[in-house]
Design a protein around this nucleic acid. Sequence first.
DNA 1: TTGTACGCGTTATCAG
DNA 2: CTGATAACGCGTACAA
Lengths: 354, 354
Amino acid sequence: MNGPNGRAQTGPTIRDVALQAGVSVATVSRVINDSPHKVHRATRRRVLRAVVRLGYHPNAVAQGLRRGTTRTIALIVPDISNPFFPAVARGAEDVARRHGYALVLGNTDGDAARERAYLDILRKRWVDGVLFASAGGDARALRALHAGGVPAVLIAREATDGEIDTVLVDSFAGMRLATSHLLRLGHRRIAYIGGPRGLPVARERLRGYHQALRDHGIRPDPRLVVAGDFRVEGGRTAVRRLLARRRAFTALAAANDLMAIGAMEALRAAGRRIPDDVAVVGFDDIPFAAFVDPPLTTVAQPTYRLGALAMERLLALMRGEAGDARRLVLKPQLVVRRSCGARMPQRRPGRAAM
Amino acid sequence: MNGPNGRAQTGPTIRDVALQAGVSVATVSRVINDSPHKVHRATRRRVLRAVVRLGYHPNAVAQGLRRGTTRTIALIVPDISNPFFPAVARGAEDVARRHGYALVLGNTDGDAARERAYLDILRKRWVDGVLFASAGGDARALRALHAGGVPAVLIAREATDGEIDTVLVDSFAGMRLATSHLLRLGHRRIAYIGGPRGLPVARERLRGYHQALRDHGIRPDPRLVVAGDFRVEGGRTAVRRLLARRRAFTALAAANDLMAIGAMEALRAAGRRIPDDVAVVGFDDIPFAAFVDPPLTTVAQPTYRLGALAMERLLALMRGEAGDARRLVLKPQLVVRRSCGARMPQRRPGRAAM
DNA sequence: TTGTACGCGTTATCAG
DNA sequence: CTGATAACGCGTACAA
C-alpha cells in the first residue's frame, strides 16, 4: 500500500512540529506529554505554538504501539438493543471517558463463537480490558480469558468457577423478594417463567422463587414452571404453554421484564385481566417498565450503576490495584406498581386503583 | 516505562514465530496475511504450526501503525440509553462486524464540546470513520469533519449545508402523515409538542404538522404549540404548559415517542382519558411504543436499518466508492395503534375497542 | 536544558 | 521462493 518511506499519516507528525519549532522531536514529545523532564519555558511556548499552528494531534496508534496500551476497553453484550444493556453501556462509557478511555461495543447474541471472536481482539492488543455482560456462552472463553491474565469484569453474570471479578444484583434474593410480595398479597398458585436453562442467573432466580414458596410453606408445583428465553416473545409462548396445561394460577412471576411484558400481552389475549385475574411481577426494571400496561411490578437492577461500577473495578484492576474482593453483589429492591394490584386479590371484578 | 529495548507485548511476536519456524519474519508475515506472494507449501505449514504452537496473534496496533488503518469506526450518539439509539448501534455494529470492523461508542448528551472531543479521536487516527447520530451540537464540528476529508455519515440528522452523507427518515412527510391521520379522524384542534429549537429534524417535523393543518384548510394556532426536549420529562412539562393555557384540544402530536409517553402520563394525571378525550400520536416507533398504555400510534423510524445503511454507506465511502448520492431519505410509515382510538371521536364516553 | 538514536511489531520493497 | 531491512510515529535512555 504505502512504500517503505511513504507517509501513512495525512496530518502533521511530531517531526513536522519539531521542524516548525526548530527543536528536536524529543523536546516536542516532552512538551505534549508534559513529562517531568525539564523544558525551558520559551522552548515550550515555541513548541506549543507550532502545535496549534500545524493543528498537530499525536497519532494514537503509534502511541499505543510504543506504550503498549490503547486506552480502549471492550464491552461485550448479547444485544445492545435489548433494553437491559443500553444503560449498562452508558454507565461504563461515562466512567471510561472520565478516565480517558474509549469503549468498543460488541454484540454476541449469546453465541459462544462470537464471544470467543470478541475475546480475540484482546489477544490482538486492540483493547486493554473487557467488560463481559454476554450471557449465553461457554465457560471456556471465560477461563481462557482469566488464564491469559487479561483484565476483565463480568456484569450481571456469574463465572462458573468464580475466578473472575463480577458485579451483579443478587438474583436469588431478588426473585425471592418478588415472589414473597405475591404471597403476601394472598396468592398461592404462582406460575413462573424462567430464563434460558443452564444460565447461572436463571438458576438463581428460579431458586429464589422456590425459596419464597417454601418460606410460606407451599410446595412448588413443577407444572406451574416453564422455561423462557428472556425476550418478549418467550413470555408470550410461555404463557400459552402454561394455559394449555390447564393449571389454575392467580399470579405469575417472570425471570425478567421482557418476558413479563410478553406474558401480560398473552394473558390479556386469553381474556385474563391484569392484575385482577393474574398479578404479575418481573425482574430488571427496564426503563419502560413503568409505562407498560399496566405498570410493571419488578425487581430493580441498577443497570447504569452496574456498568459504572464494573468499569471502575476494571480500571482499578488495570492499575494493578487488584485487591481480592472479587464479587460485588448489589442488594435487589422491589418496585411495586399496578401489575400486582393495589390490594389483596378479591373475587369480585373491578379495575385496580391507580 | 519500558526501556529502549523492553518488550511491551506479553504474547509472542512475529519474530518468535519466525524463530520457531526457522524462517524470516517476512515469510511469516506473508503466510498470515496470505499474500499473493508465493510461499512454499512446506514452509507455510511450518509457519502455521509455529503459529498455533505459540498461540500467536498479530498485534493489531502494530498493524494499524504500519497500514495506517485501524479497522475501527466510531458511532457518536447523544445517549445510548435513549431507546431510539440501541437499534441504530446494533444495525451499525452488525454490518461493521461482517466487514471486519469494530465499533467504538461515544455519548455526547448533545453537548458540542463532547462532540468535538469525540471527533478528535478521528484526528488522532484512532478510528477510520465516523457515524454521527448526535443531535445537539454545532455545525462547526461537522464542517471541520468534512473539511478534514474524514469519512463520515450522519444518521437521522441533517447537515445544515448538506455536504456530508446522510441517512434519515423524511421528518416532514412523517409528521404530516401523523397529523393528517388525526385530521381524518375528525380532530380540528390538535396540539403539538415540538423538539429542541434549532434542531433541523425538529423544524422539519413542525413544518409537517403545519403543512397537514393547511392541507385541511386549518390555520395553525401558535398557542397549541409548545417546545420540548425529546425526552419523557419534556412531554410531561409540555402538557402542563399546554393545559395552563386553557386552550381546548382533542388531539396531540408529539415530535417523538418519548415526549408522547410523558404527555399521555401528564394528560391522564390531569383527568383526560386517552384516546377518548385526547388522541395522541408520536414519532419514532421506539421498541416499546406498542406496549405503553395505550399502545402508541406513531411514525416508524426503522432504526436498525438506519444504522446498517449508514454503516454500509460509510464503508463504501472508505473504499473510495464515493458516488455522489449523498442523501438517503427513507419514506416514513404510520403505525396506527390505540392511542388514536379505533374510530372517529365521539362525545359519549366508553373505552376504545382493542 | 536539549538532541540523537533505538526499538515497539508489522508490512512491503528489494536483492538474492 | 526466501531473507534482510527500511519505514510507520512515537517515547525515552543516554550523551552532550
